[in-house]
């Protein structure tokens, strides 16, 4: 018989009976992954956008490496269409931590001519891939740590925690490295690259619960605030200088919050009165719409669009 669990246990002293909660377990796994990156890769970087997932990553990096410095710089690929509050938060947080922040912008790639927009109004979101690959090449990064989660999207559900990208930054879903136990293989050749996702196994709810438990500070737009909005295809499109109202649009002033804070042109807020993390957790636990479904203005069109973008080098 193979009953190694409860029955086999001798009397356990009080200190040892401390149960790991699901957050403890997720945290321990993520710290282990971050340390594997530090142990196996020679030039890693951590993608930090000022968004909630990467804020969790920073906290996990503190837990993994303090009192030492992080063994990697922070990297942000800025589309130039981000909310001011988020960019300010990004800069302040990096300064508070005393860690190096590298910002590379899609606008620089446009100036270089490596990013060409089909029209001036086209979303710059998908062009981040180009700027990211340029930054990887410039700095010789062999691993980029990101805050993507497997619950976000179908294509991600099959992605490895250590996800290999070829010279063109491409993900080949049919040719992934087997990933067993917690034995991660971060080896890559020149020009190739690993993408590493320490919070792969977290859900949106886990992220919010961790933010609450660790009392992590967030950019203000994650909490309910008044904002001019136009309703489009069942989503709330924010009215901003980058995304002005079109003729015939009805602009409403609504109380909203962002569930995710990406590029202004493709991230929609949701109606909410949640002004605290606890209230957001309450709403997240009972929501009926997935994070991406409720908030993405760009890729609702196709079930397969994320997979397509990842094959092209997207994060």
């Amino acid at each position: 018989m193979n009953a190694l669990a409860a029955s086999a246990a001798p009397a356990i002293d009080a200190a040892a009976t401390k149960e790991l909660s699901h957050l403890d377990w997720l945290e321990a796994e993520a710290i282990h992954i971050l340390r594997e990156v530090a142990g196996q890769c020679s030039r890693p970087a951590l993608l930090f956008s000022g968004g909630k997932d990467s804020i969790c990553l920073l906290r996990l990096a503190e837990k993994a490496f303090r009192p030492g410095r992080f063994p990697f710089p922070l990297l942000h690929i800025d589309t130039g269409h981000n909310y001011r509050e988020v960019i300010d938060f990004r800069d302040r947080r990096a300064a508070e931590l005393g860690e190096r922040l590298i910002v590379r912008s899609v606008e620089d790639s446009m100036a270089r001519g490596t990013v060409v927009l089909k029209s001036p109004g086209e979303s710059r979101n998908k062009h981040q891939s180009v700027t990211l690959l340029e930054a990887i090449e410039e700095h010789g990064f062999d691993a980029c740590i990101g805050g993507a989660r497997r619950d976000e999207e179908k294509a991600r559900a099959k992605e490895r925690i250590f996800s290999f990208r070829d010279e063109f930054g491409q993900w080949d879903p049919k040719n992934q490295r087997p990933e067993l136990w917690n034995l991660y293989n971060a080896r890559s050749g020149p020009g190739e690259n690993m993408r590493v996702f320490p919070i792969s196994n977290w859900t949106e709810l886990d992220v919010w619960q961790y933010i609450e438990r660790e009392r992590l500070e967030l950019p203000s737009i994650y909490f309910a605030h008044l904002r001019p909005i136009v309703r489009r295809n069942g989503l709330l499109a924010p009215v901003t200088p980058v995304t002005p109202a079109q003729p015939g649009d009805v602009v409403e002033e609504l109380q909203v919050r962002f569930r995710t804070v990406g590029d202004i042109t493709c991230t929609a807020p949701v109606e909410s009165s949640a002004t605290t993390v606890a209230a957001i957790i309450e709403e997240t636990a009972v929501t009926t719409i997935s994070e991406r479904g409720a908030t993405r203005l760009d890729d609702q069109t196709s079930e397969a669009s994320m997979e397509q973008r990842k094959k092209e080098g997207y994060f």
């Binding site: 409860a6 149960e19 403890d24 530090a38 142990g39």
Partner: peptide, 18 residues
Amino acid sequence: HAAGRARHHDALRFPVQY
């Protein structure tokens, strides 16, 4: 980790990562 908990009296294994 509960299975692990029952095995806390197992001998320590701590591979050094970093």
